[in-house]
Each structure stands twice: as structure tokens, then as C-alpha cells.
Design a protein around this nucleic acid. Structure first.
Length: 290
DNA sequence: CTGGTCACCTGGAAGC
DNA sequence: TGCTTCCAGGTGACCA
């Protein structure tokens, strides 16, 4: 598992520290890893061990996919889009899901719910908490009810200070919750929302509509830098991720505030504070973030 | 439309 | 030691 415990030596207060939590960078790294191997290959079989994810797996998945050639793998927000030409397999990793390439003969573990078998290799979905989803869309995937309402891609050129400023006008919700609303902005989960707001030096409790234009102009690159730092960290251990049996440390990161309640701010030394926003734990430096 | 809350699920940690 | 309780997370559903 992950090698690094919180630097203070105290046990991790939040078990989440030790879990894989797929936010946008993790999903994108998964996509890139699979892209190197899978496109052009044909699905020989589908093995469903447990169809009860967030939504029931399509019953006829085996019939749908057998003999189909995977053309490409895209991503929209945290959804992976496996393009088979005849339709798209939509995969969401929830909060504990992972996709790995394994020898098809490798025995499946307790939470390995689904295999797509490509010759001697299987694409294996593991998801202990089963918050993930696997869906089939035969038509226009962009029009799928889970995909169509999604907001701006934070790494795209569309994510600008002007748009963020405009979108936040009149909104009373805390900026952290606003950042995490997938209908506004995709891919930013609880961890990276706290981290991004620290980088932007903005108090996560600030009502979104009260952010000045100048603060929006700080927040946009802060979100991008946070995600890109995570991408870089994941990219460096991509090979390990794809072929080892553990998490291989690709999520191991140096958080500024997340999970660090009571520990010194890395910028000013002030104790990091915790708060609840939308029933989610939130961390911030009361001195750096105003 | 907006904002607030809940449910889903499991494993790990803390509490008794 | 072994049981119970709580909590983490993303997101759709639901409420006022």
C-alpha cells in the first residue's frame, strides 16, 4: 500500500488517507495507461462476477461486447468512455474503483467484479465499495443523461477566470462546494478542492458569489496546478500502477492541507483547521486563506 | 433554479 | 479479545 504516513507520525485520522480516491488525475492516468495497450484489440469475453454496482450492470454486456473492437478510450469528467464504434461503455470508478490489466488467468479477488477479456489479458474492474458504474450507450454518448449535464473540464481552455466569475454570480454556496459541483466543473473532488483553495489562498467557506474577479483569476490556475501536479505524480509511476497488485504509490502525494488538521501550515506554520462543508471534511490554513 | 440533506457501500479505526 | 459505532468518499435523488 502507500508507504507514506502523515509527517507528524500520528496515525492517519482519516482512513481515506490510505485509499485510492479517483479524482480527475487518477482517472486520466488510468485512461493513458490503458490507451497504450488496448485500442485495436477485440473483446473475446466478458466475465461478470458481481453485477450490483451503483447501477446494475447491463445484463447483456457479454453479448454486446463479444467480438467488438475497442477503438478508443476517452474521458469526460471522471467518466471513462470506451468507444467500440457500435456504442460506448461508460465506466465510473466511484470512490474506490480501479482498472488494471492482468493475465486473464489470474484468480480474481473478492472485489473484482468485472473482466473484459482481450486474448490473454483481462481488463479487470475492482471496486470494494461499489460506488462505481458501468453503463452501455449505443447512441450519442454526449447525450447520455449522466454525461450531458456535466460542467467545464478544468484542464481545458474553457476554464477561465471570466467564466468562473460569471458562473459564481449570485451563488451563496461556499466556493469549495461550488468547485465540487460536477454540473459546474468536473473532476474536482473533496481532496483537490481543499488543495486548490489553499493554492489560491481563498477560504473554502467564502460564498462563491462574493469572489472578486481577481480571486477568480487566482483560483483558475490554482485548480489547474493542483490537478497537473497530481497528474505528474501519477504519470511517473504509471507502469507500476498498471502492472502491480497494489496502489504502487501513485496517489502518494504531498498534501498542503488535506487530512492535516492541527499540523503546521507548510507556508506559514499556523495550525491547519478542519471544518464541515456539505457534510464533507474540509481543511484550510486560517492565516493563508481568507 | 437553488441550496441543503440523504443514501448507497465497505473496510478500517476508534470506542466500549 | 471481540463487539459496536463511526467515518471516508462521488453523485444522483429528493426535499423545501
Amino acid at each position: 500500500m502507500l508507504g507514506g504516513f502523515p509527517p507528524s507520525g500520528k496515525r492517519a485520522k482519516h482512513a481515506a488517507f490510505l485509499h485510492i480516491m479517483p479524482e480527475l488525475p487518477e482517472v486520466e492516468i488510468t485512461r493513458r495507461g490503458l490507451l497504450a495497450d488496448l485500442p485495436g484489440r477485440t473483446v473475446d469475453a466478458v466475465v461478470v462476477r458481481n453485477p450490483t454496482l451503483r447501477y446494475p450492470l447491463p445484463r447483456t454486456l457479454g453479448r454486446i461486447l463479444a467480438g467488438q473492437v475497442l477503438r478508443d478510450i476517452g474521458r469526460r469528467g471522471k467518466y471513462l468512455l470506451f468507444d467500440f464504434g457500435s456504442g460506448t461503455l461508460i465506466v465510473h470508478l466511484g470512490m474506490s474503483g480501479s482498472l488494471r490489466l492482468v493475465p486473464a488467468a489470474e484468480p480474481a479477488g473478492r472485489h473484482d467484479h468485472l473482466d473484459l477479456v482481450f486474448g490473454a489479458t483481462a481488463l479487470r474492474l475492482r471496486d470494494p465499495r461499489r460506488f462505481g458504474a458501468v453503463l452501455w450507450e449505443r447512441g450519442d454518448v454526449a447525450a447520455h443523461p449522466l454525461i450531458a449535464p456535466l460542467g467545464i473540464e478544468p484542464l481545458s481552455a474553457e476554464f477561465t477566470a471570466d467564466r468562473l466569475h460569471a458562473a459564481t454570480r449570485g451563488r451563496a454556496a461556499a466556493i469549495k462546494l461550488f468547485l465540487m459541483d460536477s454540473h459546474v466543473l468536473v473532476g474536482v473532488g473533496n481532496i483537490y478542492a481543499s488543495e486548490s483553495l489553499f493554492r489560491a489562498r481563498i477560504d473554502p467557506r467564502t460564498p462563491a458569489g462574493r469572489l472578486s474577479r481577481e480571486r477568480c483569476a487566482r483560483l483558475v490556475p490554482a485548480v489547474r496546478e493542483t490537478l497537473q501536479a497530481a497528474l505528474a505524480a501519477g504519470g511517473s509511476t504509471l507502469r507500476d500502477f498498471m502492472h502491480s497488485d497494489g496502489c504502487a504509490g501513485w496517489f502518494q502525494q504531498h498534501y498542503f492541507v488535506y487530512g492535516r488538521e492541527g499540523e503546521p501550515c507548510r507556508a506559514c506554520g499556523t495550525r491547519i483547521r478542519a471544518a464541515r462543508l456539505g457534510q464533507r471534511s474540509t481543511f484550510f490554513c486560517p492565516r493563508c486563506q481568507r
